[in-house]
Design a protein around this nucleic acid. Structure first.
Lengths: 219, 219
DNA sequence: CACGCCCGTTTTTGATCATATTGTGGGCGC
DNA sequence: GCGCCCACAATATGATCAAAAACGGGCGTG
């Protein structure tokens, strides 16, 4: 069995814990991250923490600020534009490749995830929205069997996470992108192009909102 | 001044050393990498080595083989296809963005790098070709100021490195892609689209060769 | 006389190492 | 051929050393 947190090495669990903190917005951009702080917060030794931080920084989820200080990077409009370019390329492709490999069970699972997304929106649960929306995409893409693209998705999601969080903190969970229903319908029809299109639409809406939020913040 | 290897922290130097080993083919795919082996080979403590390995694995340059063994991943044809997709998207874009920012000095520097590439081809110097070809691209893209895209290039280059090396080992340095001259001419004309096109052509040639090599190996 | 700035001290934090601990793989005996 | 035991390599901890940032006192100035 794959009991999470049971037999994984400590540095792996530390990595995942820290990763979720970044991904789901428990750390805000600009906030400094100290090794010793994490050692105390997570109750683990410093070696695992160090390794987790290295992994995250090499994925761009954390930034080495000046001389040996670490923080969550603040996203500029330019950087977000680059991120958007990649997402538009990678995610529809992942969706396209995943579609023919989906089983009925997979689709049911994704539908369940989408229901959780809707519930989170309803309740205004920001963290829940981030988590389940991410899982909806991640679980779908995981079926593609495309390792390299998948690893890029991980990186991009990691970098986009904090900005999304900031955006949500400012505007709440209203008017959130949700073309998941269209995507699910296309999956059931096993129409790869339609799935890719729906995912692209979903992404595009998110990008528009974050871009607007960033633009407004700049002025 | 930035004297390399002088004032950088040990883990950073270790990371770069290991990175170059992968990038320029000093480690072959499938070859196991042990922590203690590197400790002795590089003459550093084990903490820096551990961190370097973590960073490389999280970038896909190294792979955790089953239970706590590390090796350079072997590239499959499918994976290379994914890599190619990314390169076609990212690299021309980086070239396009870099072009208007190039100074005459930059172009001269790139021309010098290209001369070294040619010299390496002439001499059949595989390692030299890999190094200077990579530097030609990396230095050009670095001018783009696009951090996110640049970090993706780093990752993709890291994953493609070993395969390139294998291909060269099999076929030698003859018939190597070199559309650098066209690229340089376009740079001097400050024609961003032409630079992007030349770079795309350069990449395309390389992809074709590696793909052919991988296909042949498979059968 | 009050405010602000600069410099030295203190404290926090990061880097590295030596070492104990644990888990895995291979060899040996049954 | 199967299972147990041993040795080795990787993981994780805590200590130690070095550096940087924060703090505070003293000085100069408005």
């Amino acid at each position: 069995m794959n009991a999470p947190g049971a037999k994984l090495p400590e540095h792996e669990r530390t990595y995942r814990a820290l990763r979720e903190m970044v991904l789901y917005g428990e750390l805000s951009p600009g906030q400094p991250v100290t090794i010793q702080g994490l050692v105390e917060a997570l109750g683990v030794g410093m070696t695992p923490v160090r390794e987790a931080i290295r992994r995250l920084t090499s994925q761009g989820a954390l930034m080495l600020k000046g001389n040996r200080r670490v923080q969550v990077p603040e996203m500029t409009l330019e950087q977000y534009g680059e991120l958007a370019l990649i997402r538009r390329t990678v995610e529809p492709e992942l969706a396209r490749r995943a579609t023919p490999r989906l089983t009925d069970d997979d689709i049911a699972d994704l539908a369940a995830e989408d229901a959780l997304v809707d519930a989170a929106i309803e309740k205004g649960d920001v963290r829940g929205y981030l988590a389940h929306n991410h899982l909806f995409h991640a679980k779908l893409y995981a079926r593609s069997g495309a390792e390299v693209l998948m690893s890029l998705f991980d990186i991009v999601a990691l970098r986009a996470g904090p900005s999304l969080r900031v955006m949500l903190g400012r505007h709440g969970t209203a008017n959130l992108p949700d073309m998941h229903r269209e995507a699910l319908a296309a999956m059931r029809a096993r129409d790869a192009e339609a799935v890719a299109a729906a995912i692209l639409g979903d992404i595009e809406q998110g990008i528009t909102q974050v871009t607007r939020s960033l633009t407004r913040a700049k002025s």
